[in-house]
Every structure is written in structure tokens, then in C-alpha cells.
């Protein structure tokens, strides 16, 4: 499937992925995250169930301290 991940086109071999699977493949091990699929905010409890499919727009925002 092809998705837009953080404003960049990316291709993955499985036809769908859960958020948890995507984080594992991309090696995103951050603790503080904000994730949206097609503009919809996904809560942490939903990472195992929320499915990303071909054509989706995904934002994975990694938050770090400093201000």
C-alpha cells in the first residue's frame, strides 16, 4: 500500500497495517506521540486496532521537551 506519512509518500508491502505495526516498522520508539489518520486523532488505546490502508494520510508527531 502507498500512504502519505508526515507529508511524504511511502510504500509498505502489507495491504494494511495497524498503528502499532507501523510504529514498529518505522522504528518509532518515542513515548510522547500524537497520531492522526486522515485528520482523525487516534488515542494510545487504539494503536493496536486502528488500521491504516492504501491512500491514507497519516501524521505521526513525536513530542520532545524544551521550551
Amino acid at each position: 500500500m502507498k500512504i502519505e506519512l508526515n507529508n511524504r509518500l511511502e510504500e509498505f508491502s502489507p495491504p494494511t497495517l495497524t498503528i502499532s505495526e507501523l510504529l514498529k516498522i518505522k522504528n518509532f520508539t518515542f513515548k510522547m506521540l500524537v497520531i492522526k489518520i486522515n485528520g482523525q486523532l487516534i488515542r494510545k488505546e487504539e494503536y493496536d486496532q486502528s488500521v491504516i490502508k492504501d491512500g491514507d494520510t497519516v501524521m505521526v508527531l513525536h513530542l520532545i521537551s524544551g521550551g
Binding site: K31, M32, L33, V34, L61, L63, I64, S65, G66, G67
Partner: peptide, 10 residues
């Protein structure tokens, strides 16, 4: 300042 507060407000 803190990452968890940034996550909360976003």
C-alpha cells in the same frame, strides 16, 4: 516546556 504537556494541548 515538557513533552507530555505538549502532547496534552495538541
Amino acid at each position: 516546556d515538557q513533552a507530555d504537556a505538549k502532547e496534552m494541548i495538541i
